[in-house]
């Protein structure tokens, strides 16, 4: 059997790489399997067109990439047709924190001290990953590329095929949605209305990182729930 027409060998030689790529893009094992199958079937049907100008792996990858892009477009159409896709995701997307003047309407909830104090907490990571999973795919991808993997912005833009402005909008959306999602799960006791130590530590860090901030490292208690219009 000629080497290039041997799909079993494709699976042995390139299966793991195709799998990793598909999983990273679609984040669903069933969909990843379907897309790889579609890509391999397409490769099998068109292998005569493979002239060996690229490596076999590059060729298979480009077919898989097209299948993933088709899938993404179909999913986008579906999402547009029956929005909201899920109540949780829709609730995250809703911007209800500010009034019409841009002042505070719904204050950010305090996060439970026990969960945020230690980022080693399994609960925190479970919630963090679950919330990452609720973000729209493009937003989650931007966040993971930049914040988790530390990819430089120009490279992230090239990979996502978006403009820098678009990237920054996605980063902001990711932060807002993640924060909101985690707030629903890590909320502290509302009766205490104190800024917890974990947040206070981070507030201190950010003031240090911003240099010319307040000399006061103390974070005071929230004054009360009604800060509408606070600027």
């Amino acid at each position: 059997m000629p080497p290039l027409t041997d799909p079993e060998r494709w699976l042995i030689d390139h299966g793991d790489m195709l799998w990793r790529y598909a999983i990273a893009r679609v984040r669903d094992t069933h969909v990843a399997e379907e897309l790889i199958q579609a890509a391999l079937v397409a490769a099998l049907e068109s292998h005569a067109g493979f002239r060996g100008e690229s490596t076999e792996r590059t060729w298979l990858m480009s077919i898989l990439r097209h299948k993933i892009a088709d899938h993404g477009r179909a999913r986008q159409r579906e999402r547009t047709l029956r929005e909201p896709a899920s109540a949780a995701a829709a609730s995250l997307a809703r911007d209800d924190r500010y009034n019409e003047h841009g002042g505070w309407l719904n204050l950010p909830a305090a996060w439970s001290r026990s969960l945020t104090r230690s980022l080693e907490s399994d609960d925190f990571w479970r919630e963090f990953e679950a919330c990452l999973g609720l973000l729209p795919a493009g937003v989650a991808e931007a966040f993971i590329l930049r914040e988790v993997r530390g990819i430089d912005a120009p490279i992230a833009c090239a990979e996502l095929r978006i403009t820098p402005e678009n990237l920054w909008v996605r980063m902001h959306r990711a932060r807002e949605m993640l924060r909101k999602c985690l707030s629903g799960k890590l909320a502290g006791s509302p009766s205490k209305r104190m800024v917890h130590q974990a947040e206070a530590d981070h507030a201190g860090n950010l003031r240090a990182s911003h240099g010319k901030g307040s000399k006061s490292g103390r974070v005071s208690a929230i004054r009360g729930p009604n800060l509408e219009g606070t600027r």
């Binding site: 950010p108 305090a110 996060w111 932060r175 924060r179 974990a198 981070h202 507030a203 950010l206």
Partner: peptide, 8 residues
């Protein structure tokens, strides 16, 4: 608080 949570 928002900034602290973003930073976290």
């Amino acid at each position: 608080r928002l900034f602290a949570q973003f930073t976290l």
